[in-house]
């Protein structure tokens, strides 16, 4: 916990290294048990003879409405995807609201409608919930927490543990990266960039279900806060192998590329809400890509890199001009550059 002597800072919630340190230095220290210790996207629980996946996520996004979605849709997608990448089939979710006094009811209804529509699309039931209202100024308009339960597919119950990954395995993503983070930032900040960048926020459980039905997958994770870079760094550290990314293979929308160039951001650090990173044997990649590309949520899927023996624990990006650079996890808050 060396990053801050005694106060929580925004960087602690960025999904990068500061948050990682907070979790391991504080939460795991006090909550530790064999299930939590796995630090997987969902907890895998044995209850009687069945194996279920259980996860939770809170949503505090500003602005509440952004191109491509709103906090309601996001609250379903986030939890769906955490279950789906764990190899589970999502079944039920809970929804809890923390509402600020004075928030317009008609806006709340739009959010609730989106939540319902996305849950229906994902094929899950909202089965329990909670509502709290706080004084004006004590929270920012609407905070939502969702938790979800899914049935584990027995053949996929090792998928979140990243077991059996070897040099030569490939890394696949189901489309363009960085869309969600940049869409939200453009809606929130005052740049007034005229861009068509939209959040990619989507429930991936059906897409992932199709992939798992037909293919062998070694590992999956959704690159949300902290982006692709943070997921791949955590993976490289865990498997004690290197990961090499090919810059020219990264699918990135031009609008996202342009915003990143202007602001000095790395698309690999930007949040996604409808993307999954899949690690698989090279021989299985073709068939996985075929499955992905036949789904509207995977049209721009691509192999973006591979697992290598070199630089264990590190992610290195190769660019077209022969440059190589280390891709670190996001250190703290994503900060725009000055000029």
């Amino acid at each position: 916990m060396k990053h801050n002597e005694n106060k929580i800072m925004l960087g602690h919630g960025s999904g990068g290294r500061m948050m990682h340190d907070l979790i391991s230095g504080l939460f795991l220290k006090h909550f530790s048990n064999s299930i939590l210790q796995q630090q997987t996207d969902s907890a895998i629980l044995n209850i009687g003879t069945s194996e279920i996946a259980f996860t939770t996520d809170s949503f505090v996004i500003d602005p509440l409405f952004f191109p491509g979605g709103n906090i309601g849709k996001l609250a379903v997608c986030g939890t769906m995807n955490d279950l789906a990448v764990s190899g589970a089939e999502p079944l039920y979710i809970s929804v809890s609201f923390i509402l600020e006094e004075g928030f317009p009811l008609n806006e709340l209804e739009v959010i609730v409608e989106s939540l319902a529509a996305e849950a229906k699309k994902a094929g899950v039931l909202i089965v329990t919930g909670d509502t709290k209202v706080v004084n004006k100024g004590k929270c920012d308009k609407v905070f939502i927490n969702t938790a979800g339960i899914g049935r584990m597919r027995p053949e996929n119950n090792q998928i979140c543990k990243a077991i059996g990954i070897e040099p030569g395995d490939v890394i696949i993503v189901n489309g363009t990266i960085g869309d969600h983070g940049m869409a939200v930032m453009n809606a929130r900040e005052s740049f007034n960039f005229k861009t068509s960048v939209e959040s990619d926020c989507a429930s991936l459980n059906h897409l992932i279900g199709e992939v798992l039905e037909k293919n062998a997958v070694k590992f999956m994770r959704d690159p949300t806060r902290g982006g692709v870079a943070t997921v791949l760094n955590e993976l490289a550290e865990k498997i004690h192998l290197g990961i090499e990314i090919d810059e020219s293979a990264l699918p990135i929308n031009n609008g996202v590329k342009a915003m990143c160039e202007l602001l000095g951001f790395d698309p690999l650090h930007i949040a996604n809400e409808g993307k999954v990173l899949i690690v698989a044997k090279e021989n299985d990649a073709k068939s996985i890509l075929e499955t992905l590309i036949n789904n509207e949520l995977g049209l721009q899927s691509a192999i973006i890199g591979r697992v290598v023996n070199e630089h264990p624990g590190k992610v290195v990006l190769k660019n077209e001009t022969g440059g190589r650079r280390i891709v670190d996890s996001l250190a703290g808050e994503q900060l725009p550059r000055i000029c």
Binding site: N4, K7, S190, P336
Partner: peptide, 15 residues
């Protein structure tokens, strides 16, 4: 950053 966490009103601007 630390002063902001201590309650100072510090805002990032792009321009």
């Amino acid at each position: 950053e630390k002063e902001r966490a201590n309650g100072s009103d510090i805002r990032i601007v792009y321009s």
